[in-house]
Design a protein around this nucleic acid. Structure first.
Lengths: 331, 331
DNA sequence: CCAATTGCTGCACAGCCGTGCAGATCGCGT
DNA sequence: ACGCGATCTGCACGGCTGTGCAGCAATTGG
């Protein structure tokens, strides 16, 4: 199987190979007539520029790595989808690196990206080892990190701290005093930040906060965290969950296992506003994060970095907005 | 920014460039001693084989396109994740083509894949236009289609018909007679097949079936379909939903808006067994599809096709299995 | 000790493209 | 008619790699 080469197109069109190349190169100088001839011949033969060869020459491809653990879960799924779509619109080729549990797989994938001279890498989640950043640095791979304060890379951050503080405030001003927060043992930096900021804000207002952790930041995590909160100690009347999945698990346990009412007995606030939050069974009050907006910022940072490689690291902020639903009404 | 080239490694190691190339080429003949020298020099300089140049020569890259619409939704999210993981394990580079709504975007993405000499393309969903298959065919791009009986490509199919028939049978043998099925107007081939097979099986058993459609095959689709089913005409006592999301929407409407009981008043069976099906609020009886198994079959087909390009098209089947939960108990 | 085989190595070429440079063509003003 | 500038074209080079082929050293067998 051989692909059509520019040589063949040139021959058919009766021009030199350079003319063909220039026809398909942005901003090159070709006479409209030859351009026309070339395009016709290319169409006839089914010619496609060999981006590999082009990449060899320019020493860069249009690949952009998207690194995520469990990209099928919760908000990350939406973020991944939004990001790939934005990248395609930009003319890039999104490579989804679904890093399993092992570090080797991640590093192997990174080497593939470097081998293919990827343009940049976007990190959605997971905590890559130091060597990851080192390798990227060493090979001039621009990095964009989402939701994590990595100082050596451009980053897009959500206002986790601000939002979490707001959660504490609205709970307290609604008269709730027995606060709790649900996080996880395998917390990403975002999850941890939300938990800590909530606790700090509550303390600042003179409120104690019970803390419960699931194993992961998912539905099951919410289940076990809520069970511990309600089976021992003083029962909370307001819980801030570090993401929506945790909140769904908690809500189900509260209602079904402890027969308590949400929001009357217990108020709940989640984070992310995944579509399930609006489902009739849940009606979760939560902080909305717009995946498309975050993706757009990430792409913007990419563009900036490509145009001015030596600019200092930048940081974009996206502010989550509290959406009120049934699980906790506006005070 | 220049990357390290084999030339430089060769110089440092005191060997020819060929030796370097052979060191990094599977199955090439190099003396252990030189190999060692080369590896050491490569390590020191931070050398990575330029896969682009390699690709130019071999006329192929290790990119594999993964085409999906709305890859963040429901079962597709899990399938996408499983597939990318399997591809990475295989040493391929998964490129996630998130086709927006427009056909142009899809075709543009396909051209990028061809331009980069992608090894193959896997289609998860969506209905690519005829020209898509034509272009792939013309450029020798192997195609693997999941969940769709495209005759011109290798394919992985779920036993939609068998499962749907089973759904009808268990409903009927449990004494349910007022059957209904929920599908969608923008049905994928899988969704349509499930709907049709269920209706056919019920008819064969002498049962009428009411049919309701949502706009899309998602939660909102289930909502509107259930509303039409219960606000007019004879109310069904058993509903087969073409996927789990439709079932969740239907279940919420049945319980919350019509105050009926699931499964006492209405039994529900879904399809896919996404994790939400096991959530306490739903407990959905549904057909399990294992994303990892499907992904493994797809990768197997890829391997086969690469080794024997002229083999006739193959078709792998994966059988979904009915998982009983609260929404409908085993008769 | 010599011949034959084996195992490596380096040369040179092929694979496909973008682009600087020099030459060719063309239009235009005088 | 002629000179000049502008526009386009083709040549040749460079970018990085894999591999056939011939040569070389080393090992083995007699």
């Amino acid at each position: 199987m051989r692909f059509v080469s520019a040589e063949q197109v040139a021959k058919l069109a009766g021009v030199s190979r350079s003319a063909v190349s220039r026809t398909f190169t942005e901003g090159a100088s070709v006479a409209p007539a030859t351009r026309e001839k070339v395009l016709k011949a290319a169409e006839e033969l089914g010619y496609h520029v060999n981006d590999l060869a082009r990449g060899v020459l320019l020493n860069q491809s249009r690949l952009v790595g998207v690194v995520a653990t469990k990209p099928e879960i919760g908000f990350r799924a939406h973020l991944t989808a939004a990001l790939t779509k934005a990248l395609i619109r930009r003319g890039s080729i999104p490579v989804l690196i679904n890093t399993g549990e092992t570090e080797e797989e991640l590093l192997a994938a990174q080497k593939m990206l470097i081998g293919h001279r990827a343009e940049a890498t976007v990190i959605l989640s997971g905590s890559p080892p130091e060597s990851f950043f080192e390798l990227a640095q060493r090979n001039g791979q621009p990095l964009v990190v989402i939701g994590r304060a990595e100082p050596d890379a451009d980053r897009v951050l959500a206002g986790n701290a601000e939002a979490s503080r707001e959660a504490a405030e609205v709970f307290i001003s609604a008269g709730r005093r027995r606060l709790a927060v649900i996080g996880s043992h395998s917390a990403t930096p975002s999850i941890a930040e939300r938990e800590n900021a909530f606790v700090a804000a509550a303390h600042a207002a003179g409120c104690e906060v019970r803390i419960a952790h699931g194993r992961d930041s998912d539905y099951d995590g919410g289940i076990v965290a809520a069970r511990t909160l309600f089976s021992q100690g003083e029962r909370p009347d307001a819980i801030f969950c570090a993401n929506d999945l945790l909140a769904f698990g908690a809500m189900d346990v509260i209602r079904q296992e402890f027969s308590l009412s949400v929001p009357d007995d217990v108020a709940l606030i989640g984070f992310d506003d995944v579509p399930e939050a609006a489902w009739l069974s849940y009606g979760l009050t939560t902080f909305r994060q717009d995946p498309a907006a975050i993706a757009a910022r990430a792409v913007m940072l990419l563009d900036r970095r490509q145009q001015k490689p030596d600019e200092p690291r930048a940081c974009e902020r996206v502010i989550p907005q509290l959406v009120f639903r049934k699980s906790f009404s506006r005070p």
